[in-house]
Amino acid sequence: MKIIRTNKAHATQDGAGVNISRIAGFDGRSLDPFLMIDELKSDNKSDFMAGFPAHPHRGIETFTYIRKGGFEHQDQMGNKKAIRAGDVQWMSTGRGVIHSEMPLADAEQGMHGFQIWLNMPAKDKMRPPRYQDTTEKKVPVLQNDTGIELRALAGTWQLEQQSATSSINELAGNGAIADVILPTNTETTLDISAHSKAIVYIHSGSIADTEYVETYQFEVDPKAPLTLKAGERGLGVLVLVGEPIREKIAHMGPFVMNTQEELHQAVRDYQMGRFGDIV
């Protein structure tokens, strides 16, 4: 594993006061084609029960993965879904989406999940929105004889001699995402050489013989094998790969476009009700 750069998530709030850890890359370089990694991890319901009331997006894709607890999603396209532990949800927002994400009642036992933003290329930012989830076609899971597990959240992945492809496989920038869980003192190597960008985010435990623990994120050279070795508390990581879009980014809150004028138009369209309403 060849590490290019490292970062550590910072604590912040979003929605109606939800406490999260965030890695942001709106510079268009550090995470490209990804823009942001938000992790919500708490057993204290006051950290998350206020949820994310109705809000808009344009020009991005949102990728939500729940490890514990759950949210109810609603949007102006008519989707109303309970996204629970093990589920993934993907929205390619295009020209505009309004949605809400509110905790389910059974999330009182705690919540652990992610929302990841991907940048959409300029040619796709104003296309109609799309929605997909895995509530019916579940995430494929690969496991070896040492108990190492790979959940293919998006795209195609391989664990040793096994491979699996998620039903969600059209992310911007040819993005693919996996959740890899290793028991204590186990080790595995992933071949990610088919991609130009690779990011690892630690959500549980630590990497053996390093300082890298929970909420550390690092970019690695995808041409080198990605070797993961769990520490004494085991290891859980998200692995995110894709192809950089390399386009200028103009960012304002929930909107990501290419120019300031496009941002101003997004605000005007939202204020004039052109995004629709949740019904």
Score class of each variant (00 low, 15 high):
Asp47Trp: 01
Phe63Ser: 00
Asp124Ala: 10
Val88Pro: 07
Asp14His: 05
His73Leu: 06
Ala16His: 06
Gln76Glu: 00
Ile23Arg: 10
Arg67His: 14
Ser42Trp: 12
Thr62Lys: 02
Ala50Glu: 10
Ile37Tyr: 11
Val141Ser: 13
Phe48Leu: 03
Gly94Leu: 02
Ile20Phe: 06
Ala82Gly: 14
Met102Thr: 15
Ala107Gly: 14
His55Pro: 01
Ser46Leu: 13
Gly69Cys: 00
Lys125Met: 10
Gly155Asn: 14
Pro33Tyr: 06
Lys138Trp: 15
Thr135Leu: 15
Phe34His: 06
Met111Gln: 12
Glu61Ala: 04
Gly59Asp: 00
Pro128Ile: 02
Asp106Ala: 11
Ala54Arg: 02
Glu61Gln: 13
Gly86Lys: 00
Ile60Gly: 01
Arg67Pro: 13
Tyr131Ser: 00
Phe34Cys: 05
Arg151Phe: 10
Trp90Arg: 04
Asp43Met: 14
Arg58Ile: 04
Tyr131Gln: 05
Asp133Ala: 10
Gln109Ala: 09
Ser46Gln: 11
Gln109Thr: 15
Ile98Asn: 00
Ala154Val: 08
Pro53Ser: 04
Glu108Trp: 15
Asn144Tyr: 06
Arg58Ala: 11
Phe48Pro: 02
Ser100Asp: 12
Lys45Tyr: 15
Ile60Phe: 05
Asp75Phe: 03
Asn119His: 06
Ala154Glu: 09
Arg58Phe: 05
Asp124Ile: 12
Val18Thr: 05
Leu104Ser: 14
Leu40Glu: 10
Glu101Gln: 13
Met126Thr: 07
Ile23Thr: 09
Gly96Gln: 03
Lys137Met: 06
Gly96Trp: 00
Gln74Leu: 07
Gly59Trp: 05
Gly28Gln: 01
Glu101Gly: 09
Gly28Phe: 02
Lys81Tyr: 15
Ala107His: 12
Gly69Val: 06
Arg127Leu: 14
Ala54Pro: 01
Lys81Asn: 14
Asn44Val: 06
Phe48Arg: 09
Asn119Thr: 08
Asp47Cys: 02
Gly70Trp: 08
Asp14Leu: 01
Arg130Lys: 15
Val88Asn: 08
Leu142Met: 13
Lys41Leu: 13
Pro129Met: 00
Leu31Trp: 05
Asp47Met: 00
Thr64Pro: 13
Ile98Met: 01
Gly78Ile: 04
Asn79Tyr: 02
Gly17Ala: 03
Gln74Pro: 07
Phe48Tyr: 09
Ala107Phe: 07
Pro56Leu: 03
His99Trp: 03
Glu136Tyr: 11
Pro128Cys: 03
Thr12Lys: 10
Ala50Thr: 11
Ala122Met: 12
Asn44Ile: 10
Val97His: 02
Ile148Ser: 04
Thr134Glu: 07
Thr134Met: 07
Gly86Asn: 04
Gly70Arg: 08
Phe34Pro: 01
Asp145Leu: 14
Arg127Gly: 15
Ile98His: 04
Gly25Asp: 02
Arg130Val: 11
Gly110Tyr: 08
His112Tyr: 12
Asp32Ile: 06
Ser42Glu: 03
Gly59Gln: 03
Ser30Asn: 09
Ser46Trp: 07
Gln13Phe: 14
Pro129Tyr: 00
